[in-house]
């Protein structure tokens, strides 16, 4: 895509002209070294139980990363659609988007996950039974709804996407609104359609505005993904619980889990800061 290519060129040129952020850099290194140091120390000095814990958690780390990254990709898309919906002049689209955002923001993520995993299948059962009763021709579809079993991973991704998508909608909306109306008018007056103007003029500018809050959302999602452990996903937190219940070493287990989350969030926020620096441009 040529515009992506052009954007990249623009960004590289800009990044070169920006001052380096020495101070934050140093604090970050200090923290990372400290945390990684503590983890290695524990593992080397007391391999039993700490090495065992790390090895036991290993699969969970992968699941946590995977669930976060996959969900986040969906969240970026859902947020964009939700944000544009909130800005739509059409009252129906605006209404649906607003309802979605307001409802989801008012319910705790944990409750949403529990509902999706434990209550939603019952809704499907009900709908399926109703379809079967309604007409024999719908029997297949109805039976499918009754039979379908929720996959924990899919439900976890869906839950995180629905919840964080609502927050992301608001971030997109604010970002798009922060771009002056004159930009849309200039683009439209050159004959661009609404979507062309969004794609080539408004969003490239809005993206730079929303990057810091979007980055925060990513880090928050990484931590909140620990909630999926209640819906039978073997993420790091759930693996920790499993280890603890077989070994009864609460202190050691949760110390290690906490340290590993810290390492992950530290790296995530570093990547976010790096992307922010790369995409900044002279105002």
């Amino acid at each position: 895509m040529p515009d992506v290519e052009r954007l990249e060129r623009t960004l590289e040129a800009k990044a070169a002209t920006l001052p380096k952020e020495r101070e934050r850099f140093d604090t970050w290194w200090f923290l990372v070294l400290a945390v990684v140091g503590v983890v290695s120390l524990l593992v080397f000095v007391k391999p039993d139980p700490f090495l065992r814990i790390v090895l036991f958690l290993r699969d969970g780390i992968g699941v946590t990363v995977r669930i976060t990254v996959i969900s986040f990709a969906f969240i970026l898309v859902v947020g964009l659609i939700g944000g544009l919906g909130r800005l739509a002049k059409n009252w129906l689209i605006h209404g649906i988007a607003s309802l979605y955002v307001e409802i989801i923001r008012g319910i705790p993520l944990l409750v949403q996950l529990l509902f999706l995993y434990f209550a939603f299948p019952q809704v499907l059962d009900g709908v399926g039974a109703w379809l079967i009763k309604l007409s024999p021709s719908l029997h297949g579809a109805g039976q499918w709804l009754v039979d379908v079993k929720p996959d924990p991973f899919v439900m976890a991704v869906a839950g995180l996407t629905i919840c964080y998508g609502a927050y992301m909608s608001e971030i997109y909306r604010a970002g798009i609104q922060s771009i002056s109306k004159g930009q849309m008018e200039a683009a439209r007056s050159l004959g661009m359609s609404y979507f062309q103007a969004m794609r080539y003029v408004i969003l490239p500018q809005a993206v730079r505005v929303i990057l810091p809050p979007v980055g925060n959302e990513f880090v928050a999602l990484l931590k909140d993904s620990s909630l999926v452990s209640v819906v039978a996903v073997s993420d790091m937190t759930r693996r920790g619980r499993e280890f603890m219940s077989s070994s009864f070493m609460s202190l050691e287990t949760w110390t290690m889990v906490a340290l590993l989350y810290l390492v992950m969030t530290l790296f995530a926020s570093r990547v976010v800061a790096y992307i922010e620096r790369k995409t900044a441009f002279a105002k």
Binding site: G182, L190, G191, F281
Partner: peptide, 27 residues
């Protein structure tokens, strides 16, 4: 119909050249 605004409304994320080529290319 071309229009020129009081506040210029150039696209700040694009160079002068890209400002002029964008609509030519997409429209």
């Amino acid at each position: 119909v071309g229009i020129v605004f009081q506040q210029f409304n150039l696209f700040p994320h694009l160079t002068a050249l890209e400002n002029i080529t964008l609509a030519q290319r997409v429209v």
